[in-house]
Structure formats: C-alpha cells, structure tokens
Write a protein that binds this DNA or RNA. Structure first.
Ligand SMILES: [Mn+2]
Ligand SMILES: [Mn+2]
Ligand SMILES: [Zn+2]
Ligand SMILES: [Zn+2]
Lengths: 138, 138
DNA sequence: TCCTATTTTATAATGAGTACAAAGATATGA
DNA sequence: TCATATCTTTGTACTCATTATAAAATAGGA
C-alpha cells in the first residue's frame, strides 16, 4: 500500500475530498512530525508543485482543522503550527531556536477536561517552554 | 496607601523605573484582571493620557515581561494577552466571544515542570478552549 | 544650567493571515 | 460527447498585530 493511498483514505475519513494539493499537504504532515508552519509546508512542497499557491496551503489547513483531521497549535506566537497527531500529548517550544517538540508519556490526568460552571470546555493544550539542549550549550 | 504607590513599589521590585506611562499600564493590569490585549490597554488609558503612544504600550509590556513582572499568554492566536498574576493557574478562551478567563483550583500537579532529557523547561501554560455560558445560549 | 542617558513618540516597515474574484478542474445529466 | 453547475485553486490586494527606527521629550546628576 503506498503512502498517498493511505493519506487518501485518511482524508476521506474526515469527508475531505482528496485533491492533489490536499493530498500533498496531508502527506507532508504525516511524514514530517515537526509541527511545521504554513511557510515551511509551502516551501517544502513548492519545488515539486510549482503552481502551488500559499493561499491553497492556508485554505487546506483551515479545512483540515475544521474537519478535525489536524490540530492547530498556538504555542508559537509568531506562526500557527500544525500537528496530525491529535492524541493527548504536550509540546515544548525552545525560546531560542523556536523548534516545537512533542512531549509524550505525561500523566493522563493532565489532559482531562475539568468541569466548570461557567464554561463548556472542548479541548486542552499544554505547552512548555525553555531551551533545548543544542541551544543551551551555545 | 494609594494604588499608584503600591504599583510604584511593585515595579521597583522588578528593577523597573516607574515612569508615568509604566505606572499607568501596570496600574491598569492590576485593576483589570481580564487578560487585556495591547489595544485594550491603549484604548482604556488613551482618554486620560492623550499623548500616550501605542508603541509605548508595546515597549512597556515587553519590558514587564523581560523583567518577569507580568506574564504573556499565547492562548489567543489573534493578539498577545497579559496577566499580572504570575501564580500557577490555567486559562480558558471562548472560541465565540474571545474572552479569556482564569481557571483556579486545579490540581497543583498540573503545573509541575517535568524532567526531560532533551530540554530545560522554564515554564508551563495550560489553556482550555470551548464556549462560555453566555455564548452557548445564543 | 548644562550634559548625558533614558524614555517616549510618530512614522515607516514587516509579515502572518484573510478576502475576493477569476481561472481551472471535476462531476453530472442529457 | 457536450453543456452546465459546483468545487477547488490561484494571484492579488488588503487587514492588522508587531517591530524598527530615529527624532523629540524627559529626568537626573555635576
Ligand atoms: Mn505534537
Ligand atoms: Mn490569569
Ligand atoms: Zn533550541
Ligand atoms: Zn463567549
């Protein structure tokens, strides 16, 4: 089974019509678990899809989020970042290099949705920040 | 003891020279625990300080954050939001009206900084999102 | 008062994201 | 196959938050 076929199926699960562009973007997210920005996605795909428009990347990601196929992270004040892994995990952003990493294996209680009289809570995002080892040394 | 004097002292604790503008901004944050945006702060202060520049509000908040006197929240993708309460508490943003509220009384374990071999973690931010009661009804 | 460093200000520039309308692609039914 | 309607992509223009820059104002010490 080739990768594009898997991606195809994944999109259909979320009622997303798998156009060439959408498939390419989703495929990129599947293979690059670095929480890329719109610009990173566009820059990576652009050489092999010369007619791709950055607007399409925006449109595509907005659609993916609307349908729940990807998660938007707000950990980085500069750019939105995207994650196909919608399972419960936290993120770390290095204040020096700006890279965003996964933090797995935290206690599941951290991701529980609390009850609150004034709000209906739908989701939780846990974000850590500091310095990565590479940046700490220099 | 008047409010401005308290604010004065608070700023000095963080080695911030208490100019008229800085005192006004900090005073506003002390009295308005609504996690205001730059624009909200500027709009609120502007009538009583007609010469105030929005750049000054930016400069001032950047200084406060640098010195640790306030906390910047990244819960809202549209604007930075600011909080004088630097104690461990979480936030909720309503996806409809955009207001940001405090959530206190969560288990203290939630705010513990985990150990990780690859990162030196300095801070944690816990953000919930959903709908507030007012928005849910309409 | 004079000098210097700090702070504030107005303006211009940057850059992420959205709005819009035209062009292109795809599906459907005769 | 053709005609047509719908969906998707694209380029451009625009909005708006934030930063850069340099001049003006201010404060404080000699
Ligand atoms: Mn992740
Ligand atoms: Mn708060
Ligand atoms: Zn780093
Ligand atoms: Zn609301």
């Amino acid at each position: 089974m080739n990768a594009s076929l898997q991606t195809h199926r994944y999109l259909l699960q979320f009622s997303i019509k798998p156009s060439v562009q959408r498939t390419a973007v989703m495929d990129y997210l599947m293979k690059n678990r670095t929480h890329p920005t719109i610009d990173e996605i566009y820059t990576a795909l652009s050489p092999s899809m010369p007619t791709l428009s950055k607007t399409t990347v925006y449109n595509t990601l907005n659609l993916f989020i609307e349908r729940g196929a990807v998660q938007a992270l707000v950990i980085d004040e500069k750019n939105a970042r995207f994650d196909v892994d919608t399972s419960s995990h936290a993120h770390f952003i290095c204040k020096s290099c700006g890279k965003v990493h996964d933090i797995f294996n935290l206690k599941p209680e951290l991701f529980e949705i609390p009850q609150h009289p004034n709000f209906t809570i739908h989701s939780v995002e846990i974000s850590y920040s500091g310095l990565c080892n590479a940046c700490k040394e220099s």
